[in-house]
Design a protein around this nucleic acid. Structure first.
Lengths: 219, 219
DNA sequence: TGGATGCTAGACTAATCAGTATGATGTCTC
DNA sequence: GAGACATCATACTGATTAGTCTAGCATCCA
């Protein structure tokens, strides 16, 4: 039986042991992975045909999992934001002394310069913040706000430093770091104005600790 | 004579006293102004028809002044960069004391938050830095680099402050300011995490002066 | 065995868009 | 007045695209 030559063999492997739901979400996963590569590389103007091809899936399948292009895009950005949020600052960091803490935070933030996905996501969210303001607001409220609040909470709680405005101080630190990522990687500025991460980190650490020290003396 | 009803009256006013060259560049100007509004509002995906309409000009006229869409876009970005570069920091600022100087720089930088054109340009250049890396590199080398260098030169020359790394310090100040613009305006974060410009500026000034003071003592 | 479901390849529609072509009008210069 | 030129409105070409439709295949379950 099944003597048919099956010219376009349906490439579905049986994979016994996986139930319907699993396989369903597997397709969804493949689509999101394809969409990730294509959207991050080409921006929102990427074509749905290209995404389906990259995902190794029929276009109709894309539309059976996602209502339209906008839904797929939003789902992808949501997922990516979740992914990067989870890699934030963890509880054990809070035990560090001020100098080590700030240095660690800075290293973590700047290490994302090497992550093509992160750099592309940053470019994409900023670039589409006109067309999709809800996505950039999601980025702000889910990634930036918690990060800055945790940093501010540390600055406020730590005995070694004292600032008149920990929130604003946290923003300065965060801004100096993220802007470095944007300038060097997103905007390809690393050739025109090279600078090592270590130099930036050293200056941030010095600056913050000097100011935190001064704040203690004057209180 | 001219009894023709002239249904689509050619809206060219005679404007005697203007020579050919002037009128030529007037059309070019109208096109660039239309392109400015449309590109900044819709991004590079804006249509040439929309630009011509916004400029009040026939599409063919656009193509007689600019080779293609890419050329028009590049010319526009060049022009905008020139425009904003000229509004940089002027010589008389250098005479100010450190506190006033930094405060002034910060105010000037943050005042651009109110400028829709500037905010949109920032979004556009970052967003298209994947497709048009040469434009973001132009932004870096023409706007960011000179600004940071002048700031670093002031920090190095001024007697009231001393830093182990003025270049890196300048980057921190610049990053804190620009990132505030990006977060609050470009990414619409001002509702999710409001903060007054004055708070940020005060913290930057305090931080820099404390650190600059400390640098003097330890030298 | 037979129906439901998820998938596939591919064709199709309707819209949009960059860029070109046409043909006419007004202005300037000689 | 004639030719050159800039511009105009409009139509067209060719390509791309989002989203739909069709028809068939494979797997699962009752």
């Amino acid at each position: 039986m099944n003597s048919r030559p099956a010219p376009n063999s349906n490439s579905r492997a049986p994979e016994e042991g996986k139930d319907n739901v699993t396989r369903l979400s597997e397709k969804r996963e493949k689509i999101l992975e394809g969409a990730l590569r294509v959207f991050l590389a080409q921006g929102y103007s990427a074509s749905m045909d290209a995404i389906a091809a990259e995902a190794g899936v029929a276009k109709q399948t894309v539309y059976s999992h996602f209502k339209d292009k906008h839904s797929l895009f939003s789902a992808l950005i949501d997922r990516l934001l979740d992914h990067f949020v989870s890699a934030g600052l963890t509880a054990d960091l809070l035990a560090l002394d001020a100098r080590s803490f700030i240095r660690k935070i800075a290293h973590i933030t700047l290490s994302r310069m090497d992550d093509w996905e992160y750099v592309s996501l940053l470019r994409l969210i900023i670039g589409e913040s006109g067309r999709f303001p809800e996505l950039s607001e999601l980025y702000v409220s889910h990634m930036v706000k918690p990060g800055i609040e945790k940093l501010a909470a540390y600055l406020r709680a730590n005995e070694q430093v004292r600032f008149s405005d920990p929130e604003a101080t946290a923003r300065i630190i965060h801004g100096a770091l993220i802007n470095f990522v944007i300038l060097q990687e997103v905007m390809h500025g690393k050739h025109a104005m090279p600078m090592s991460r270590e130099r930036l980190i050293n200056s941030i650490v010095d600056m913050v600790l000097f100011a935190g020290e001064q704040g203690k003396q004057s209180s």
